[in-house]
C-alpha cells in the first residue's frame, strides 16, 4: 500500500465526519467575521465618541474664550430697556494697553455728544453726556470712534468692524457678539448712512454708543 492510498482513503471517509469538521470550520469563520464587525463597530464608536468629545470641548472653550476675551465683549444684552437707557449692562473698564492714548473699555454704553469729525468723516470724537449706568464711566470722558469705509464702523481699541446699513433707530447691530452698536433717534446721519457723500454730523448731536471704544481723556463734566 502506498502513501497516496491513505490520502485517497481519507478522501473517502464518512461524509458525516467531514460535515462535522466543516461545520466547525464554518462556525470559526463566522466568529472571525463577527469579531471583525465588532472591531469595526468599536472603532467607529470610539471615533464618534472622540469627535463628539472634541466638539464638546471646543464648544466649551469657545464659550469661555468669548467670555474671557481680552478684546472685550458684551456679556449680556438681556436686561436692556426699550428706550436704550438704564441698559443694565455690566460695564467694565480695564486699564488696557490697547489704545495709545487712553484706557480701553471692554464695554461701553454711553450717550455721546459728537465733538468732532476728522479724517474725512471716518472718525469722530464724542464726549460722554450720559453714562447710562455704566459705573466706570463718567460724564466728560472723550471717546474716539473710528468708522471704516462708508458703511462700517471700526471701533478703535478693538479692531472689529460693524456694519451700519441704514438700520432703523433703536436697533442693534452685532458682529459676532463681540461688538454691538446701538443708536438712538439722535444718531447722526453719517452713522446711519455711512460716511462718504453724507453731511458731516453736527457738533452737539447725541447718540447712544454701545461698543468697545477708547477713552481718550477724562475731562471733568462742565455740569
Amino acid at each position: 500500500m502506498r502513501e497516496e492510498d491513505i490520502i485517497d482513503a481519507i478522501g473517502d471517509i464518512d461524509e458525516e465526519l467531514i460535515t462535522e469538521a466543516e461545520e466547525v470550520r464554518q462556525e470559526k469563520k463566522k466568529k472571525v467575521i463577527i469579531k471583525g464587525l465588532i472591531a469595526v463597530a468599536a472603532v467607529f464608536l470610539v471615533t464618534v465618541l472622540t469627535f463628539t468629545a472634541v466638539a464638546i470641548i471646543r464648544s466649551d472653550s469657545g464659550t469661555d474664550g468669548l467670555t474671557n476675551s481680552s478684546t472685550g465683549g458684551f456679556n449680556s444684552w438681556s436686561d436692556e430697556d426699550a428706550d436704550g437707557k438704564n441698559s443694565g449692562l455690566t460695564n467694565t473698564v480695564s486699564k488696557g494697553d490697547d489704545g495709545e492714548r487712553g484706557e480701553k473699555l471692554d464695554l461701553l454704553a454711553v450717550m455721546l455728544e459728537v465733538t468732532g469729525w476728522y479724517e474725512e468723516g471716518s472718525c469722530f470724537m464724542g464726549r460722554v453726556t450720559d453714562t447710562l449706568d455704566s459705573e466706570n464711566l463718567s460724564k466728560g470722558m472723550y471717546i474716539e470712534v473710528n468708522f471704516g469705509k462708508s458703511v462700517s464702523i471700526e471701533i478703535k481699541g478693538n479692531g472689529e468692524k460693524i456694519q451700519l446699513d441704514n438700520k432703523p433707530t433703536e436697533s442693534m447691530i452685532s458682529v459676532g457678539s463681540e461688538i454691538t452698536v446701538k443708536y438712538s433717534t439722535l444718531i447722526p446721519p453719517v452713522v446711519t448712512n455711512g460716511v462718504a457723500g453724507n453731511p458731516e454730523p453736527t457738533r452737539g448731536d447725541h447718540f447712544i454708543l454701545v461698543a468697545d471704544a477708547v477713552v481718550l481723556d477724562r475731562v471733568p463734566d462742565a455740569d
Binding site: A9, L17, E20
Partner: peptide, 27 residues
C-alpha cells in the same frame, strides 16, 4: 476498505481530535 477503517478509527476518537485530524488531512 482502508477508508472504512479510518472512518471507524476516527469515530472512536474524541470530537476535538477527529475534527483536527480531518481539518489537517482531509481539508
Amino acid at each position: 476498505e482502508l477508508s472504512g477503517a479510518i472512518s471507524k478509527f476516527l469515530q472512536r476518537q474524541p470530537k476535538e481530535k477527529r475534527i483536527l485530524f480531518i481539518m489537517r488531512y482531509y481539508f
